[in-house]
């Protein structure tokens, strides 16, 4: 397996190198199928349908079809994709960080290693907030509270083993507390956890920045920090790293191709995505939806994907959500 993948990366390196120069020569793709491994409406579906919109409007692909295969954080979609689309050069699947964790906690027999990585598209940093009237003012206060007694600091966030949960565990780890002892309370749906935070039922909340944005601006929530890289924080959007908490994580979305496609097919797909990301239509969508451009392709993305899987497994094992 790993041998096969190494070969794949080398091929991709070549493809990526060529892709930079040969752009206009390759013809328009006739047909593309994008699978969203989720029900219509969710983040992956919106990504798939936005891609469909931008690809057809910019004329990069003549016809784009989106299919939805919902279920279990993408576990069902990826199984169908890996088994059913093998060798198909005209298919893509949208996926994201949540799938990395879901495949681990669901003990999925299919893994992301079986897909052909194409590119990361968007990313969103996690934000930690507290109710406006909380005695906790900044990351240092929160760190002290977690360190003093992790049980007393309750976190509201998304599903167990998801990116919010992982970020909370990493926070505990970074401040020197026991990550298995965090009192993380998963809620279904952003609305429910936001209500619990606003109502002061929990100590802190954690989710993508977008979910909290309007509450922070209205002064109902206090932003403790974002999981952005060091030096990227501002006065309104402080970075946790700048406050001395070594925690950097982003909830990204990406596209992968089926296993067993040829180097030419992969190059064609990578080229199309490259042109998509640079298109005016896509950039407009990013702005409307408030998604951050996190484009990364070829080799770099394949390495990123492998690294993130390793890190996620480590964290989930250390929190006790995955038995090693």
């Amino acid at each position: 397996m790993s041998h096969y993948r190494k070969g794949l990366w080398r091929g991709m390196l070549a493809a990526a190198a060529v892709a930079g120069f040969v752009t206009t020569a390759s013809a328009q793709m006739a047909e593309l199928k994008i699978m969203a491994p989720a029900a219509p409406g969710g983040g992956w579906d919106q990504t798939a349908r936005s891609m469909q919109q931008a690809l057809t409007q910019s004329g990069l692909v003549k016809s784009v079809q989106v299919t939805n295969v919902p279920g279990a954080g993408g576990s069902i979609g990826i199984a169908q994709f890996v088994n059913g689309a093998k060798g198909a050069g005209d298919q893509l699947m949208v996926m994201g960080y949540v799938m990395v964790g879901a495949l681990l906690t669901n003990k999925s027999p299919v893994t992301l290693d079986q897909t052909t990585p194409i590119a990361r598209l968007t990313g969103e940093y996690e934000a930690i907030v507290v109710p406006a009237n909380s005695p906790i003012k900044n990351a240092k206060d929160l760190a002290a509270a977690v360190k003093a007694d992790p049980a007393k600091v309750t976190w509201a966030g998304g599903s167990a083993g998801g990116v919010d949960h992982i970020a909370a565990a990493l926070f505990a780890k970074a401040v020197g507390a026991d990550p298995t002892k965090i009192n993380y309370i998963p809620f279904s749906g952003g609305g429910e956890s936001l209500a619990a935070i606003l109502g002061g039922k929990v100590t802190a909340g954690i989710a993508g920045y977008g979910e909290f944005e309007s509450q922070i601006k209205a002064g109902k929530l206090r932003l403790i920090g974002l999981t952005t890289p060091a030096g990227k924080g501002t006065a309104e959007m402080p970075s946790l790293k700048d406050q001395g908490v070594d925690l950097e994580i982003a909830n990204w979305r990406a596209v992968v191709a089926p296993p067993g496609i040829t180097a030419e097919q992969k190059k064609a797909l990578s080229d199309t995505i490259d042109k998509l990301v640079k298109s005016k239509e896509w950039q407009e969508i990013l702005q409307q939806k408030g998604w951050d451009d996190a484009y990364q392709s070829g080799d770099a993305f394949a390495k990123f994907l492998t690294d993130d899987q390793v890190r996620t497994k480590e964290v989930l094992t250390s929190v006790g959500l995955v038995k090693s």
Partner: peptide
């Protein structure tokens, strides 16, 4: 809760929120 807080508490409300956001509008206190 959707209009007053921007809290989508049902699947449909979540979609309407996405509909608002499509136009750069953020339901909520503001």
């Amino acid at each position: 809760p959707l209009l007053a807080l921007g809290l989508p508490t049902s699947a449909t409300a979540a979609m309407m929120l996405a509909g608002f956001q499509q136009y750069g509008l953020n339901p909520g206190p503001l």
